[in-house]
Design a protein around this nucleic acid. Structure first.
Lengths: 160, 160
DNA sequence: GAGAAGTAGTTCAAATCTGAACGACCGACG
DNA sequence: CGTCGGTCGTTCAGATTTGAACTACTTCTC
C-alpha cells in the first residue's frame, strides 16, 4: 500500500542523509564564521570568490553567478560588506552598467582570520569523517549532480 | 606559498561539489514545490513529518527537532500552514505547555499533490544521476557525517 | 509542598531574502 | 543616426528568519 513512486530504502537513506548533513553542516559553518569573524556564510563566500579572482575583484553579475545567489541578494550582501569596509565598489571603465566589487585589505584580513576555523569545521565534520575512497566518490558524484543541474536550470523537457 | 592548512585538490573538489549540489538541488526543489503546490521547502518538510507521525500529529518541539528548525521559525511556519488550513493546532492534554501540530485532510491532500513532482526532482537530479554503488556510499558516508554533527552540536571539545 | 531550575511555545524587533519592476547602458541592425 | 532587444545593478514592498526576551507550565529537590 506504499505509494508506487516512493523512494526505496536505499535511496531514501541516501537522500535523508544528504539533507541532514547539509542542514547540520551549514549550521555549524554559520556558527563558526559568526564566532570567529562575525560573518554570515554568504558573506564569507563572497569574500572567498573575490580573493580568488584576478585583481581581487569581480563584476557583480559574475560574482552573483559564482556564489549562486540572486542579483538582489548580492546587492544586499555587498552593501553590508561595504559598510564594514571589507569590500569596495568601483566603476567599471568600459561598461558603464557594470560595477566592480573589490576586496579591500581589511576584507583580505577578515578572510585570513576566519579561514583556519572554517577549514577546521569542514575537515572535522566532513573530510576527516570520510575514507579517501568515499571522498573520491563524493567528489565525482556531486560534480555530475551539479553539472546536470547547472545545464538544466529550467527547460521545457527534452528527452535525452 | 599556498597556505598550509588549505584543503587538498581532492578534498576541495568534494567540498565544492557538495556545496554546489546542495545549492542547486535546494533551488530546484523550491521551484517545484512552489509551482505544484505553492509550498516552501520548510513547509513541505513540516507536512511530511506530520504525515509520518502517529495520528498525523507532533508536538511543536518534536516537530522542530525533526525538521531541524528553530522554535520561532517553526511557530511562523505552522502559523502560515494553519492559515492555509493544512495544519491545525490542538491543546495537548497532559502537558499544558505543549501544543499538537496536526495535519488536516487538506494538508494530506496538499502533500499528495506535490509529492510526485518532488520525488521526480530528487530522482532526476540526484538518485538517477548516481550509480547504485555511489548511492550506497553516499548513504553510509552521510549517515556518519550527520551522526557526528548531531552528537556534537556544541561542546568544549573532548578528545575522543 | 515551596522554590529553583528546566521546558514549551510565543512574541517582538531587527536582519535578511525574494521577486518583480525600474533606469541606465550596450550592441546590433535598419 | 535611431531604436529594439538584452544586460547590469539597484530598488522596493512584502515575506521569511534570527535570537533574545517572555509567559506559562512542569519537574526536581529538599
Amino acid at each position: 500500500m506504499t505509494e508506487p513512486d516512493a523512494l526505496e530504502p536505499r535511496e531514501l537513506h541516501a537522500w535523508i542523509g544528504f539533507l541532514a548533513a547539509a542542514h547540520l553542516l551549514e549550521h555549524e559553518i554559520e556558527r563558526q564564521l559568526k564566532r570567529d569573524g562575525d560573518l554570515s556564510h554568504p558573506e564569507f563566500e563572497v569574500l572567498v570568490k573575490l580573493a580568488m579572482a584576478e585583481d581581487r575583484r569581480l563584476r557583480m553579475s559574475d560574482l552573483a553567478r559564482q556564489v549562486m545567489v540572486s542579483k538582489s541578494r548580492l546587492t544586499y550582501q555587498v552593501t553590508q560588506l561595504e559598510r564594514d569596509g571589507l569590500v569596495r565598489r568601483t566603476a567599471c571603465g568600459n561598461d558603464r552598467r557594470a560595477v566592480w566589487a573589490e576586496l579591500t585589505d581589511a576584507g583580505a584580513d577578515a578572510l585570513t582570520k576566519v579561514r583556519p576555523g572554517h577549514r577546521k569545521v569542514v575537515r572535522e565534520n566532513l573530510i576527516d569523517v570520510l575514507t579517501p575512497a568515499e571522498l573520491e566518490t563524493l567528489g565525482t558524484a556531486f560534480a555530475r549532480v551539479a553539472a546536470r543541474l547547472h545545464n538544466r536550470p529550467a527547460r521545457p523537457a527534452a528527452s535525452d
